[in-house]
């Protein structure tokens, strides 16, 4: 059974179709890269997968559930199995790192526990274990806003580790980082996904990273899938065509 199943999905913003008539299946254990120039529909696709957006037409199935037809409570239960990492990290900067990591528990914690933990951080062992895996255990009690970009992205990944979802979505996770940090973060993501047997869907703006770290590459252009193939089968010609200027195509 596929983890995600898109059936003829169209997403319009006003008159613009950010994604048009797209069908797609993603299976457990895959490492999928979404590539294409900006505005091609990569972010829209990811936001459809995690339920932030409901499509204008068509249906998105996640983990065997039709996202658009669930109650908010049911949808939340599905969303707990989907972790997302963002380009701008989306951490709460005034909070200490431990709270941002613990936010991964919030889907499961009862309210009293969430409140108590803000006063007296709970499950510090889990938090430090997650931070250890991403390589910054010493930052447990640091204020998040004092961390560098690369460190903040590691905190965001630690939060997803604590959430422990079946699948990790990553929207341009390395676009705010320099090339060196980018490779580190991507290697970290691959390692975590492979070790825990998770699925990864990541949008990237550099094809090199996609080729290096993913086993399936989907090329998007103007809201449509141009190609969808195993990394080994991707030729330079396909990529050249993907990024060719509009009027030449």
């Amino acid at each position: 059974m596929p983890l995600f199943d898109l059936q003829r999905v169209t997403q319009r913003f006003g008159d613009v179709a950010a994604l048009a008539e797209t069908s797609l299946s993603i299976y457990p254990g895959e490492r999928v890269a979404l590539v294409g120039s900006s505005g091609a529909g990569k972010s829209t696709l990811l936001r459809l997968l995690n339920g932030t957006l409901l499509p204008s037409q068509g249906e998105v199935w996640a983990l065997g559930h039709p996202l658009g037809r669930l109650s908010s409570r049911q949808r939340r239960r599905v969303q707990r199995q989907i972790g997302t990492i963002y380009q701008q990290f989306h951490l709460v900067e005034p909070l200490r790192v431990v709270h941002n990591v613990n936010a991964g528990h919030l889907g499961r914690w009862p309210l009293w526990k969430a409140v108590l933990s803000l006063v007296y951080p709970l499950e510090r062992d889990r938090a430090i274990a997650a931070l250890h895996r991403v390589g910054i255990p010493e930052k447990l009690d640091a204020r998040t806003e004092n961390l560098s970009g690369g460190q903040q992205q590691r905190v965001a990944i630690a939060r997803v580790l604590v959430q422990n979802p079946l699948v990790i979505l990553a929207d341009e996770p390395v676009s705010s980082l320099d090339p060196e940090r980018s490779r580190d973060v991507m290697a970290l993501l691959r390692e975590l996904v492979v070790e825990d047997g998770k699925t990864l869907v990541v949008s990237l703006h550099t094809v090199e990273l996609a080729r290096q770290f993913c086993d399936r590459i989907i090329g998007l252009r103007q809201g449509r899938i141009v190609f969808d193939a195993p990394t080994a089968a991707i030729s330079d010609a396909m990529l050249t065509q993907l990024y060719a200027l509009e009027d030449e195509g």
Binding site: G51, R76, Q81, I82, T84, H99, A103, G107, A114, P165
Partner: peptide, 12 residues
Amino acid sequence: NSGVAPLPALLY
């Protein structure tokens, strides 16, 4: 998006 209810999400 990761399935947290509104109130704890607001708190954090």
